[in-house]
Design a protein around this nucleic acid. Structure first.
Length: 374
DNA sequence: AACTCGGGGAC
DNA sequence: GTCCCAGAGTT
C-alpha cells in the first residue's frame, strides 16, 4: 500500500496550522546570525554550513566565513586552501568545494546574482532538494518545501507517518506533503518555523509537547505516540583502522613534514602528518612497517625517535586509532606539491583534520616543555 | 537503494 | 556507548 500525500493532507486545516506555526516562529524563534537579513548569499552559506551540522557549531564559522568572504565575488576569487582553512573542523569538506564551484558559476553565468529559478539554482553544485527549498523560500519567498531531518521528524508526528525516514521514498512523501501545506504568504517563516520547532520543541527524545504551538494539529500527540516517531532503521557501525603517524622534523628542528591528502575521498585535500595504516602487530614491527612504507611511497628515510600520543577519532562510518610519534627526516629525494617540509610557524596556515590538530597540539606542548627544561 | 563523507553535542 | 544533526554526491 503506497502512502500518498493527498491521503494525509486531506481534511488537514492548513491555514490554521500555518498561522499557529508562523506566529510561534515570529515570537519564539531564535535570533540567529543568518536571520538578520535576506541576502541570498548569506542564507546560502548558512544553509550549506548547517547541512548535518548543529546551529551552535555553525555560528562561529558563519561569522568568520562572512568576514573573510563577504560577497559572492570574494568567495569566487578565493583560493581553495584558504577556503578549506576557513572550513577546518566543520567537516564534510566537499561542501565548501561545491559552494566554491557554485558561486563561480553564479558569477560567470548569472552575473553574480543567485538565480531565483528553482531549476537553475538546484543545478548548482552542492545544492540538493533541501538547500533549494530553504534558500529560495527564505531569500526570495518562493513557496517551496524544505525537508530536512527536523522537518521529517515533525511531520511524521503531526501526520502519524510510520514509514522509515531513512528511505528515499519516505523523504519524497514528506516533500510532497510539505509542498501542499507550505504557506504561500510567508514560506520563509513557515519553513524556518518547522525546523525551529524540530530543534526547540519537537526534539528526537522527550519532545516538549505541552509547549508546542501546533499540538492541537498533531495526531501522534493526540494518540500519545510522539515518542514512537519517527521510525528510522539504524545504519551499520563502521570499522576501526589502526594507524601510525609521525611529526617528522628536519635535522635542525625548524621544519616538519606535511602531506596533502588525495583530492577525492575522506578529508580530501587537507594536510596531515604522514600516517599509514598499521597492519602488523608488535611495537618494533609497527615502527619498521611505517618507516618502510614511507621509504617506498615517498623515498623518505624517516627515523621515529619517540612516542608522542594516542589519538582516537570517530568518523561517521569509521574510527581511526592513531599511534603518533616524533621522528626525524634524514633525507628527502624530492619535495612535491603534495609533500613538503613546512616551517613550524607556517603550519597554522594549513587545513588539518581534527585528529592531526590534536597531534600538532601535543607536539608543540612537548617542544615547549623541553625548552623550559633546558 | 546503499555508501560515502566530519565532527560534536545530548543522552 | 547511541543517536543525529537546517544533506548531497557517487556508485
Amino acid at each position: 500500500m503506497k502512502e500518498t500525500a493527498s491521503k494525509h493532507v486531506e481534511n488537514f486545516p492548513i491555514h490554521s496550522f500555518q498561522r499557529a506555526l508562523i506566529d510561534w516562529f515570529k515570537t519564539e524563534g531564535r535570533d540567529l546570525p543568518w536571520r538578520k537579513d535576506r541576502d541570498p548569499y548569506k542564507v546560502w552559506v548558512s544553509e550549506v554550513m548547517l547541512q548535518q551540522t548543529r546551529v551552535d557549531t555553525v555560528i562561529p564559522y558563519f561569522h568568520n566565513f562572512l568576514e573573510r568572504f563577504p560577497t559572492i565575488d570574494d568567495l569566487a576569487s578565493a583560493d581553495e586552501q584558504t577556503l578549506l582553512k576557513a572550513w577546518e573542523g566543520l567537516g564534510y569538506y566537499s561542501r565548501v568545494k561545491n559552494l566554491h564551484a557554485a558561486v563561480k558559476e553564479v558569477k560567470s553565468r548569472y552575473g553574480g546574482v543567485v538565480p531565483k529559478d528553482k531549476e537553475a539554482f538546484s543545478q548548482l553544485k552542492g545544492v540538493g532538494p533541501y538547500t533549494t527549498g530553504a534558500v529560495l523560500s527564505i531569500a526570495y519567498g518562493l513557496p517551496l518545501p524544505a525537508v530536512d531531518g527536523n522537518v521529517m521528524r515533525v511531520l511524521s508526528r503531526i501526520f502519524l507517518i510510520e514509514e522509515d525516514i531513512s528511505k528515499g521514498r519516505t523523504k519524497k512523501l514528506f516533500e510532497e506533503i510539505a509542498q501542499r501545506i507550505v504557506s504561500v504568504d510567508d514560506p520563509s517563516s513557515f519553513n524556518q518555523g518547522l525546523m525551529e520547532l524540530g530543534a526547540l520543541i519537537c526534539k528526537p527524545t522527550n519532545p516538549a509537547c505541552l509547549l508546542c504551538p501546533v499540538k492541537d494539529f498533531c495526531i501522534a500527540y493526540e494518540r500519545g505516540r510522539e515518542k514512537d516517531l519517527p521510525v528510522k532503521t539504524k545504519g551499520k557501525k563502521g570499522k576501526t583502522i589502526q594507524m601510525t603517524a609521525a611529526v617528522l622534523q628536519s635535522t635542525d628542528g625548524a621544519k616538519v613534514l606535511l602531506r596533502k591528502r588525495p583530492s577525492k575521498g575522506l578529508l580530501a585535500d587537507l594536510w596531515e602528518f604522514p600516517g599509514e595504516e598499521q597492519t602488523g602487530g608488535d611495537f618494533t614491527n609497527m615502527l619498521t612497517e611505517y618507516e618502510q612504507t614511507l621509504l617506498k611511497k615517498h623515498q623518505i628515510t624517516a627515523n621515529l625517535t619517540e612516542p608522542l600520543c594516542h589519538v582516537e577519532h570517530v568518523f561517521s562510518h569509521l574510527t581511526w586509532k592513531i599511534n603518533a610519534f616524533v621522528g626525524v627526516v634524514d633525507r628527502i629525494m624530492k619535495e612535491t606539491a603534495e609533500l613538503k617540509m613546512v616551517a613550524i610557524d607556517e603550519i597554522e596556515h594549513y587545513p588539518l583534520p581534527v585528529p592531526h590538530q590534536k597531534i600538532w597540539k601535543q607536539y608543540v606542548l612537548r617542544r615547549e616543555t623541553e625548552e623550559s627544561d633546558g
